[in-house]
């Protein structure tokens, strides 16, 4: 859904993993931005109705970008920077419910 404008493109990149797939990212990217650039779709589903959600505010307010990072649930993707090798998964419903789907 998004692209990087010219002066924001860096030659070197890093790799993060989303739902087991490798994605290219740049050091300094917020995790939310790194996922949005790759059309990651829903970041989580709600614990109440299972509705899909993706970032709304990108400033740490709405909590709709919650994902599981390196096994830790409830991380705000908009508030953390990507790290090489970061393992990211969608958060389905209540945190801690394993995603086998």
């Amino acid at each position: 859904m998004f692209r990087r404008i010219d002066d924001a493109v860096r030659p070197a990149g890093i790799t993060i993993w989303f739902e087991g797939q490798s994605l290219h990212a740049q050091a300094g990217d917020s995790l939310a931005a790194a996922l949005l650039i790759h059309d990651a779709g829903a970041f989580r589903t709600t614990p109440v109705s299972g509705a899909p959600r993706a970032p709304y505010c990108l400033m740490g307010v709405c909590f709709d970008c919650l994902v599981e990072v390196d096994g830790v649930p409830n991380r705000q993707a908009c508030m953390i920077e990507v790290r090489d090798g970061m393992q990211v998964r969608r958060q389905h419903g209540p945190a801690g419910v394993a995603d086998d789907g």
Partner: peptide, 20 residues
């Protein structure tokens, strides 16, 4: 998903250089 605040879109531009 896909609905964001205008502020969010501006943050993507400032922080990450992203545009739709």
């Amino acid at each position: 998903p896909g609905v964001m605040t205008v502020g969010a879109l501006q943050i993507l531009l400032k922080s990450d250089g992203l545009v739709p």
